[in-house]
């Protein structure tokens, strides 16, 4: 059985309330869902919470899955929406707190503190630069941020990312190019703030 037909078969079983099928789908897609969520939250605990939310949603709304896209891209879409909602909720809670952690180049003093940064895929030597990179990613509009996360961080193919974002490949490519340009601008601003 091919990957896509296996996923579709599992969805039909989930509709019947088969939790074993959900467990199988979880083991097939958990890393994709988790890493996409991690791209937005860069915090293991938050990404785990989103991953759980996504699979509960898949179980609850399996009957609404039309089969027009692959189960993987459908799951990714749910992950993106949940992640963006989660970030908005967290930002509301931290209205007055600055999220970026920037260290003064002259004094080495921490100007801003980002306590949530706990990305398990970032090595210790890259941690400081990764925080600047994610601070810049945070300044992108939602669709550009999503294009960058799917293509660059999650390593999806153009076709898969375009299907996930419900765009054609040309539109996705131009979105990605704009994201890269805006990231350079945001990093330049961060450089000035250091």
């Amino acid at each position: 059985m091919g990957e896509m037909s296996e996923h579709h078969f599992l969805i039909t079983e989930i509709i019947k309330g088969n939790t074993k099928a959900l467990e199988q789908l979880f083991s097939l897609l958990k890393n994709t869902v988790f890493n996409v969520a991690l791209g937005y939250t860069r915090n293991r605990e938050d990404a785990e919470e989103i991953t759980q939310d996504v699979f509960v949603e898949i179980y609850e709304s399996a009957a609404t899955f039309k089969g027009e896209s692959s189960v993987k891209t459908w799951a990714c879409r749910i992950t993106i929406n949940k992640s963006l909602d989660f970030i908005r909720y967290k930002n509301r809670k931290k209205r007055f707190a600055l999220l970026t952690s920037l260290v003064s180049k002259e004094t080495g003093e921490v100007k801003f503190h980002q306590p949530d940064f706990n990305h398990p895929g970032v090595s210790l030597e890259n941690k400081e630069k990764a925080q600047y990179l994610f601070a810049a990613i945070d300044r992108l509009p939602d669709n550009q941020r999503t294009a960058f996360i799917l293509l660059k961080l999650e390593g999806m193919s153009q076709r898969e990312a375009a299907e996930t974002m419900q765009l054609n490949e040309k539109a996705l490519e131009s979105l990605y190019q704009r994201a890269k340009q805006n990231l350079r601008k945001a990093l330049s601003d961060i450089y000035d703030e250091l």
């Binding site: 959900l22 467990e23 979880f26 083991s27 958990k30 890393n31 869902v33 988790f34 890493n35 991690l38 293991r44 785990e48 991953t51 759980q52 699979f55 509960v56 179980y59 990305h119 398990p120 895929g121 970032v122 090595s123 890259n126 630069k129 990764a130 990179l133 660059k152 961080l153 390593g155 990231l183 350079r184 990093l187």
Partner: peptide, 20 residues
């Protein structure tokens, strides 16, 4: 920007399913 290439994929814990 090159740090983006060095970010590794992370394995999600299988124990998460118990919570689901």
């Amino acid at each position: 920007l090159t740090v983006a290439d060095a970010i590794g994929r992370v394995e999600a814990r299988a124990t998460l399913f118990a919570g689901i």
